[in-house]
């Protein structure tokens, strides 16, 4: 199996200057890897640092220690030390991220929001729209909503638009931060199918799923994050 993502001895601490410099040690010694076609699930109670690990990989949080290697055709890039432009390029070309919440942009329709995510990766306009329609259909977003900006949609509808955004492009690595959190059984099943499709196409996925049923259906391995708990200084 081709190694796609590799974390080596990664640590994260927040220093909260507004609380008198209080430190919050989130995780340390995080070492894990994800190969092509594999879905690895981060396990552990909330607050264990699962989301923080995903955010460090996406470059959204800074990494205090260790390496986060993203393997690609041109060798490995260490997200922990890569300059901003390189991280932006990785996000366009290599790493996708599906968060729990949609950040709506004023005046942009649901369909365009999804299509833009595909165009950002270099897909032409026609293919981007075709894929966007296909995904919104698979995720049961009613067609009458496609032309509307999602700001007024229900939580579940927004989440499905967000999932479509995350799945529409051909990223080699996908980070999934509770994509099924507020979905009903039908839509959870739709997301499970999308993940299986990605697996078959060799995408490496690292995710957080609190729903045990979904977790059991998609996970190849579960990595218990509590073993990366920072030892109190």
């Amino acid at each position: 199996m081709t190694l796609k993502l590799e974390l080596e001895d990664v640590a994260k601490t927040f220093v909260m200057h507004l609380q008198g410099g209080k430190t919050l040690e989130v995780v340390e010694g995080v070492s894990l890897s994800v190969s092509a076609g594999e879905c690895v699930v981060l396990g552990g109670p909330s607050g264990a640092g699962k989301s923080s690990i995903l955010k460090m990989i996406y470059g959204n949080y800074r990494t205090d220690r260790g390496r986060i290697l993203v393997h690609g055709a041109d060798g490995a890039i260490d997200v922990a030390t890569a300059p901003p432009r390189q991280v932006i390029r990785l996000r366009h070309a290599t790493i996708g991220y599906v968060s729990q919440f949609l950040r709506a942009i004023p005046r942009i329709s649901a369909l365009d929001l999804v299509a833009i995510a595909a165009r950002d990766q270099g897909l032409d306009e026609g293919l981007a729209l075709t894929r966007a329609r296909d995904l919104l259909t698979r995720l049961n977003v009613p067609e009458r909503l496609w032309s509307l900006p999602p700001a007024t949609f229900s939580g579940g509808e927004q989440q499905r638009v967000n999932i479509a955004r995350g799945f529409v492009a051909d990223h080699a690595i996908l980070l999934l931060d509770e994509p099924t959190a507020s979905l009903d059984a039908t839509n959870r099943a739709a997301v499970v199918e999308l993940i299986r499709d990605k697996k078959q196409r060799g995408v490496a996925m690292l995710g957080i799923f609190h729903d045990e049923d979904v977790r059991d259906r998609v996970a190849d391995r579960i990595v218990d994050v509590t073993r990366f708990a920072a030892k109190a200084a």
Partner: peptide
């Protein structure tokens, strides 16, 4: 200085933390 979402989501300097909060 840094990536926009990094500075806004994980601000490091006391003053930036104050601005964001």
């Amino acid at each position: 200085t840094g990536l926009t979402d990094q500075v806004l989501d994980d601000p490091r300097e006391p003053y930036t933390q104050l601005l964001v909060s």
